[in-house]
Amino acid sequence: MKTLRLTTLAVLVAAVSIAPLQAADETVLIAAVAEDGVTLYAKAMACDELGKIGTAKAVPALSKLLADERLNDYARDALERINDPAAGEALLDGLSWLKGSLRIGVIISLGDRGDAAAVPALAEIAKKKGEDENAAAAALNSLAQIANEDANKAILSVLADGDQVAKTAAAHAALAAAQRLEKAGKKKPAAKLRSAAQAAGVPAPVKKVAKR
């Protein structure tokens, strides 16, 4: 219960050698994330707590951890949960300088946040121009989670113009977006996505799901 947070904070305060416990929680946590010499463990715990109470103030420190292979998901997790555009912007920025799995993680997080501002960038990745297929598939999944008009257009575009591998990934995304839209009562765009998934020349089993 509450005592657990105090215990965590006490560990972090000790780790960064600053501030009495009654200092603002977030200040202590940001310091633990940002300062050199703090253990991986303390940084991870600080990220966990910032995910619960962090604000835009924590974003710069968390952004720096995105490049750390061990702590990337802790930082992403906190950024996903901070309900401030600055967190989304930091993740979006990560697309330009992160590589491999770390970058795919950011793509996934942008979808989990439902960040509409990320749609143009995700759409570019989904088109696979110079992208690896896993990044493109992750981008399509994230577009499906956002499922606004532009995201749907991007999915439809890949269904129309992508190669077979991309089309199949886009068909999965189209079905996920359609399900989301149907739940929101938006039957027309959902039907369009299902129809496109059926018509896209994807394997027959996917078409069967699209018909459902």
């Binding site: 799995s101 795919i104 690896d132 297929e133 896993n134 598939a137 992750a138 999944n141 077979q164 591998v165 199949t168 990934a169 999965h172 994807v202 394997p203 089993p205 996917v206 069967k208 799901v209 018909k211 459902r212």
Partner: peptide, 24 residues
Amino acid sequence: MNDPSKTQNSRRNFLKKATVIAGA
């Protein structure tokens, strides 16, 4: 999503042959 730790080739092979089975 395919096993992301696999190569592009294996991903491509998977997407070609294995996807979703809707019915029984």
